[in-house]
Write a protein that binds this DNA or RNA. Structure first.
Lengths: 228, 228
DNA sequence: AGTGATCAGATTGTATACAATATTGTGGCT
DNA sequence: AGCCACAATATTGTATACAATCTGATCACT
C-alpha cells in the first residue's frame, strides 16, 4: 500500500480513536473524558491527550469546560436543526459537482462504502453502520474536488453522527441506504441535476426522521434539567 | 459594560492577537512564527503559544509543519477559489435569513461597522478596513441566528482576509463599501430576496476583483520557487 | 438535624526540563 | 575550490512537576 506510516501515540491518532468511539456511540453524549484516564488508556502523556481534546472541541464533538474537563457534546435540538440546515446549503451542490466529475473508480469506491454499510447492518453493528453512512457523504465531497467545502461537510457530518445517535428513532433504518443507492445511480449517469435533487431530499428525509421534540439523553447540567 | 472580564495571557487572547495581526497584514503570508519568540512577546510559556497556534492552524490561518514550526498560511489560487465558492453557497441564504429577522438595533450595529470601515479607509489603514469589512459579513451571519452557519462563515471570512491580502489588486476599493450600503438598504426593507441577490453578486464581485492568475507573495518552500 | 465553614483529595491549567529532530557550520577529503 | 560527513546549534515534540481550581467530606455551631 502507498499509505504513509502513521506514528501511533500522537495527538492525531488519539483524536481519531476518540472520534470513532464517539461516532460509534461507545462514548455517550455527556460522558466525562478525564485527562489522566485517557493518558493511561492510550499510553501517552496528558500533553498529547490535551492536544487531541482541543482538536475534538474545535469540531464540537466534545465540550471543554474550564477547570472542569472535557465532555462528549450533547447537541441541542436547535443545534441539530442548524447542522442539517448548513448541510442542506452545502451538500446538494456538492453532489452535483461530484456527479459531473465522477470516474469509474469513484463509483466503485462509493459502492464499496455502501456494501460495508450493509454488512455492518447485517451484523447488527448499527453504530458502525451509522459511521460508514457518514463516510459516504464525506467521500462525495472529496470526489467533488473541493477541499474547503469537503472540510466543512466533514465537520458537519461528524456532528451529525452525534445528533443522529441522540435523536434517531428506530424505524426508517432501510430508507437511508436506499437513498444512497439512488444517488449512486445518478452518479453513474453523471446526472448532476438529479444528484443535487436526491441529496436535497435525502437530507430532508434525515431531518424529518429525527425526533426533534424530546431529547433522550441525560442533560449535562442539572441546573437546566430540574427547573421543570 | 456587561462584558465578561477576559483574562490576559491565555491561549485565546494570544490566538486573537495573532489572528488580528494576520488579518491586518502585519504578519505576511509565509512568515515563520517561532514558539520561543511568541512566548517572549506575549509573556507566556510555550504551552500557551502552542495551544494558540493549534487553534489558528485549525482555522487554516497558519500552517503547522511537523518539526519545522508554524508559518502564516499562503492560500493557493485553487484554495482562494474554493473559499469563495463555499461562501457563495452559504452567505446569500444567510443574508436572506438575516433580512427576515433584522431588528432596528441590528441595523444600527451594521451601520456602525460601515462607519468604522470608512473611518479606517480615510485614515489610510487599509489593513484595518479590510478586517472590518470581514466583520460586517460575520455580523450578518450572527443576526441570522444560525450559530453553526455563522461559525462556518467566520472560518471562511478569516481565510478570505488572508486571500484578499495576497491577491487583491488596488483599484475597486470603493465599490465594496457600496455593496455593503446596498445590503443595508435591503435589510431596512426586510427584503430577503434582494438581500440574497445582493450578497450573491457582492461575493462574485469580490472574486472577480482578485487577481487569481499570479501570486504576489514569497513562496514558502524555495524548492518550488526556484525551479523556474 | 440543618446550615455553613474549612480542609483534604482529585482534576485541570501552566511552566519548565528533557528528548527528538532539523538546520547550520566546520573540517577533512578529493 | 567543491563535496561530503559529522559535529554544533537551534527549534520543536513530549513528559513531568508544580500551581490553581473545583469537588465533596468533615465538623463545629445554631
Amino acid at each position: 500500500m502507498n499509505k504513509m506510516q502513521v506514528k501511533t501515540g500522537t495527538a492525531e491518532t488519539v483524536a481519531a480513536a476518540l472520534e470513532q468511539a464517539i461516532h460509534e456511540h461507545r462514548l455517550p453524549p455527556g460522558m466525562k473524558l478525564g485527562e489522566d484516564e485517557l493518558a493511561d488508556v492510550y499510553r501517552v502523556s496528558r500533553t498529547i491527550v490535551r492536544a487531541a481534546l482541543q482538536s475534538l472541541a474545535h469540531n464540537r464533538l466534545i465540550e471543554l469546560k474550564r477547570n472542569r474537563g472535557a465532555f462528549v457534546a450533547q447537541p441541542t435540538v436547535a443545534e441539530a436543526r442548524e447542522v442539517f440546515e448548513a448541510r442542506a446549503l452545502l451538500e446538494p451542490r456538492t453532489a452535483r459537482s461530484a456527479a459531473e466529475r465522477m470516474t469509474e473508480a469513484d463509483i466503485t469506491a462509493l459502492q464499496a462504502h455502501i456494501d460495508a454499510e450493509h454488512a455492518a447492518i447485517d451484523d447488527g453493528e448499527s453504530g458502525r453502520a451509522l459511521y460508514l453512512s457518514g463516510l459516504f457523504h464525506i467521500e462525495i465531497a472529496r470526489i467533488a474536488d473541493q477541499k474547503t467545502i469537503a472540510d466543512l461537510i466533514n465537520q458537519l457530518i461528524s456532528r451529525s453522527s452525534l445528533i443522529i445517535a441522540l435523536y434517531w428513532q428506530r424505524r426508517a433504518a432501510l430508507c437511508e441506504s436506499h437513498a444512497h443507492h439512488a444517488l449512486i445511480e445518478a452518479f453513474r449517469d453523471r446526472d448532476g441535476d438529479l444528484a443535487e435533487e436526491l441529496m436535497k431530499s435525502h437530507l430532508l428525509d434525515l431531518v424529518t426522521s429525527l425526533d426533534l421534540r424530546s431529547r433522550k439523553s441525560v442533560p449535562s447540567s442539572l441546573h437546566e434539567a430540574l427547573r421543570k
